[in-house]
Nucleic acid binder design. Structure first.
Length: 936
RNA sequence: GGGCGAAUAGCUCAGCCGGGAGAGCAUCUGACUUACAUUCAGAAGGUCACAGGUUCGAGCCCUGUUUCGCCCACCA
């Protein structure tokens, strides 16, 4: 591809900005994001949670993209046919909210859109409401808005490196998905699972619509509890006192209720009270639901404005009087308060009651009030005619699917939360008095008065009587209704498309835990109902991202971190790596700049390690690196065997962790290996042979450097797609390519794009562990070498040896002397010991009089530092070490002296303890002799 | 009122199957050693919230307690 220009040499610094956009384009144009369909393999499929078209991406989207992209890239590299289907959600109420705000404030953006759609511009700067536009214009505005933001959203997914199949992008209001909405509505309607009726629902006066129970946010607030006297009829100054937090609802009272067993009121039950202000006569009734211990034990009953009262009203066949308009003002049933706002009415009514001497008392009272999830306005429960989904019959199979393990929820604790909600599920109010969304597919006939339901977009004539005097229900459906169909509506349902047959059910549904009920639970119900199958087999829930202080990010708090800013500064890979390694499933994470910076440093480290390896190969013209498999065994030295063993164990571990959805831990393991083992030790040790005179040794070293680097790039690719691809491309163009490519198992076609273009790391096979490289002896021996080096470095610093000074070292290695002797060059280089004055032998022939004595395992290291050693200090150091060793010996002795430990602990644990004790004793002995020698 | 999560180094967090606790950042020493100062070498720092229990052995399992956070719930 021309988009990738071959660079002869890797630039000194990695610049994400110059790389990321170019690579994304290369991937997308190369067709790498599209699934390679194989009828014989089960595909791996994720439906991307569709972001709302309300605005730009935030960190919540970034973590979704990151985790899903990791899963997707991993499966794709493993050779699974892999589909990640992207899209966006029309988000009706959320879009209404942002458009309303733009219209009210006459924001330049909204005015611009109005101009674009050709809406006659209203004069002046007067604020607009959606009613000023009317339904048609408002919908045009919605589409214009959607057009703008879906483009922005796609760009942001690209920035994040999301390898989703854009050719299958969907929008919840696409014709096909809209058709799926109507189809499912009709099916449920025909089965009696969707019904219409007068029920109590939460209405948001600001949004102008009812919302479902889930959209109610309960918040504790300080309010007042008003005690109001209701005079009794036919009595002398008799009254019953009730308590209420919402005095304005008194206007809708149709009864007073007490508990049937309440002795205080047993004489008034059956009598009547006079409703204050309005003077209506209302009955006093007995109902079990009243709590005699609360307030006065008598409660006013407002069936049209309170859920409990609604039920009392039903039981006692009371009158339902709705006293408010949809916008929160009082209606004609409110008497003199008609037209007044509900809260103004409250104030006026309380004053009125007080004036009449009917206000007994007012208490401060903290209670939970329902707010609108979208705009935070206090909701008004009120009765109205709405559409509902009967959820209990849908919940039963959904509960079973999770209970019997067909669907697994990660982390597991959410399973309990899911069941708790499902088992207590209430009917779902799905109608909304809004415009932007799917119109309810029901038509009412003015001729016969019956209703018709159809999957067709329009209905020319009544299905019952044929009259053309039909009008569609003005309401639209809850956004989540269409979201609930997402896993299959996006694949073509209700048509039996090839995609639906092949890709459904999908594999993993990954999202934030806060929409478990809104979305996940409903997808399971609707999936089972509509397709007869589960919509996905695994639910993976991630946590929320908070700011550095653990606060929830919100626009009003002003603490929102824009992922674009972070990516601009540190690169996409750094942000992704931070998000995934800094979190565990289901737990919230705090994001800080420092964490991202650290990840950026890691990309830099990787970049430079790669630069080192490539330069090492390119600069040695005469040497031909071999595939690792072809390196003669005698050429594989201890560090080689060690890094190969470590690398293959890493592959096994990463594979296990990925399969177990522990992506963060997998990322951390790769980080540890790459930085702490490959860079810190292997590369440093390799320099000896790389800069040495033996061409075959050089070749072998290069081979291993390249082999381990290239495979680790592939391991890391799902986490950090850009930097790994960029380096990998440099490898492809290097002389090393000939060596790298034959080493990759699998079909060659995998490495090329669908069009047969250049290869990409994203379709190269994911590295698998090969047990023949496991080498316990090499790991143990190299471990000792590293310990010796660390001990010498440590001593150098402690005794203030100049950093550049090469010192002498004598190592008494006992039975280890043979193989350890072979590592002399490594020890000398890494510990800055003079190779000429490094002696490794079973025992030391001569012991220098003034020397530091280090005991490393069973090996003794003497550093003759004549003139630099403070004898007293050295003596003290040795004594400290002896004391520490003695206390460890004491523990081991006690443990092994414990008969029950020896008899009941597993044999290998006991054996390990014995070996440890022996080693400790040897160490103590050596330290003691060292101290004696010092004295001599 | 129910339920869930968290509590581990100064800070932010890992820690799988129970077998003498780790990382990053911050701090302190030192180093421009030819991949990398976005680096390297080294140091210091922990009663794993508390109290019991199970076990030969507990950060991990069980019971209770405390603190913080979250979710669900129609006490007006």
């Amino acid at each position: 591809m021309e988009t990738l220009t071959k660079a002869k040499e890797m630039p000194k610094a990695y610049d994400p900005k110059k790389v990321e956009g170019r690579l994304y384009e290369f991937w997308e144009k190369g067709g790498f994001f599209k699934p390679r369909i194989d009828p014989n393999k089960r595909p791996f499929v994720i439906s991307m949670p569709p972001p709302n078209v309300t605005g730009e991406l935030h960190l919540g989207h970034a973590i979704v993209d990151t985790i899903e992209d990791i899963m997707i890239r991993w499966h794709r590299m493993k050779g699974d046919p892999t589909l990640w289907l992207p899209g966006s959600d029309h988000a009706s109420i959320a879009v209404h909210y942002v458009i309303d705000k733009g219209l009210t404030s006459r924001s330049p953006e909204m005015d611009g859109l109005l101009k674009d759609i050709g809406f006659p511009p209203p004069p002046g700067r007067k604020s607009l409401a959606r009613q000023d536009l009317g339904r048609e214009w408002f919908l045009k505005l919605g589409w214009a808005w959607r057009e703008r933001y879906s483009g922005i959203i796609k760009k942001q997914h690209e920035r994040l490196g999301a390898s989703c199949d854009w050719s299958r992008e969907r929008f919840t209001m696409d014709p096909g998905l809209s058709r799926a909405v109507r189809e499912s509505f009709v099916r449920l309607y025909n089965k009696g699972l969707i019904y219409r009726g007068q029920y109590l629902a939460n209405r948001c006066p600001r949004c102008g619509t009812v919302v479902s129970d889930l959209e109610v946010v309960h918040e504790e607030e300080r309010g007042k509890l008003y005690y109001v006297r209701y005079p009794l009829t036919g009595g002398d100054d008799e009254y019953v006192t009730v308590a209420t937090t919402r005095p304005e609802t008194i206007l809708g009272d149709t009864a007073v209720a007490v508990h049937p067993g309440d002795q205080r009121y047993k004489d008034v039950v059956g009598r009547y009270a006079i409703l204050p202000v309005l003077g209506r006569t209302i009955p006093i009734i007995a109902d079990e639901s009243v709590d005699p211990s609360f307030g006065t034990g008598a409660v006013k009953v407002t069936p049209a404005h309170d859920p409990t009262d609604y039920e009392i009203g039903q039981r006692h066949k009371l009158q339902f009087i709705n006293v408010m308009n949809p916008d929160g003002t009082m209606n004609q049933y409110a008497g003199i308060y008609a037209g007044m706002d509900r809260f103004a009415c409250r104030k006026a009514l309380v004053a009125h009651l007080e004036g009449q001497g009917l206000l007994a008392k007012v208490e401060d009272y903290v209670h939970a009030i329902g707010h609108c999830q979208r705009c935070d306005t206090i909701l008004e429960p009120s009765i109205s005619e709405q559409w509902f989904v009967k959820t209990k019959p849908l919940a039963l199979p959904a509960i079973a699917a999770v209970r019997d393990g067909r669907i697994r929820i990660i982390p597991e604790r959410f399973t309990k939360i899911y069941h708790n909600w499902m088992e207590n599920i209430r009917d779902w109010c799905i109608s909304r008095q809004l415009w932007w969304g799917h119109r309810i597919p029901v038509w009412y006939c003015d001729a016969c008065g019956k209703e018709s339901v159809t999957v067709e977009e329009t209905l020319p004539a009544c299905l019952q009587c044929g009259s053309d005097r039909v009008r569609q229900d003005p309401d639209i459906l809850d956004t989540w209704f269409s979201s609930a169909l997402w896993p299959f509506s996006t694949l073509g349902w209700p048509e039996e498309t090839d995609d639906l047959k092949y890709f459904y059910p999908t594999s993993v549904l990954e999202t934030a835990y806060d929409i478990l009920f809104f979305w996940v639970a409903r997808m399971i119900m609707m999936g089972l109902e509509c397709t007869g199958d589960i919509p996905f087999d695994t639910v993976y829930l991630h946590g929320m991202i908070r700011d550095e202080r653990g606060m929830r990010m919100s626009k009003t708090k002003g603490n929102v971190v824009n992922p674009l800013d972070v990516m601009d500064e540190f690169g996409t890979d750094a942000l992704r790596f931070t998000l995934v390694t800094g979190s565990t499933p289901g737990n919230d994470m705090k994001l800080s700049r420092q964490k991202v910076e650290n990840s950026r440093n890691f990309t830099n480290k990787l970049w430079n390690a790669a630069r080192f390896v490539l330069q090492a190969i390119e600069n040695k013209e005469e040497v031909k690196p071999l595939p690792v498999q072809e390196i003669p065994e005698e050429r594989l030295l201890l560090p080689d065997q060690w890094i190969l063993s470590r690398h293959h164990r890493l592959c096994a571990e990463v594979d296990r962790l990925m399969a177990d959805y522990q992506f963060g831990e997998a990322g951390r393991q790769i980080y540890e290996f790459l930085w702490g083992e490959f860079c810190d030790w292997y590369i440093e040790a390799s320099k000896i042979r790389l800069y040495g005179h033996d061409p075959e040794a050089r070749a072998a070293t290069m081979s291993i450097l390249l082999y381990v680097l290239e495979r680790t790039l592939r391991l890391l690719h799902p986490f950090m797609p850009f930097v790994t691809e960029e380096i990998w491309q440099h490898l492809l163009f290097s002389k090393a390519a000939a060596m790298v490519l034959p080493n990759l198992p699998g079909e060659p076609a995998l490495f090329t794009s669908k069009e047969g273009g250049r290869g990409s790391i994203m379709v190269a096979p994911y590295p698998q562990a090969e047990e023949r490289y496991y080498n316990d002896a090499a790991e143990r021996e190299m471990g000792l070498v590293l310990e010796i080096v660390r001990a010498i470095r440590n001593a150098r610093v402690e005794f203030e040896v100049e950093p550049n000074r090469r010192i002498a070292a004598l190592i008494a290695a006992g039975s280890n002397a043979g193989w350890l002797g072979d590592q002399a060059a490594v020890i000398a280089a890494l510990a800055r010991v003079d190779p000429e004055r490094l002696a490794i032998a079973p025992h030391l022939a001569e012991k220098p009089s003034q020397a530091l004595g280090l005991v490393v395992g069973t090996v003794e290291v003497l550093l003759p530092l004549a003139g630099m050693i403070d004898l007293a200090a050295e003596q003290a150091r040795l004594e400290r070490e002896m004391a520490a060793t003695e206390s460890e010996i004491a523990r081991a002795v006690a443990l092994l002296g414990n008969a029950s430990f020896v008899s009941r602990a597993p044999a290998n644990v006991v054996e390990k303890e014995k070996e440890k004790l022996a080693a400790l004793q040897e160490r103590l002995d050596k330290l003691f002799r060292r101290k004696e020698a010092l004295r001599a």
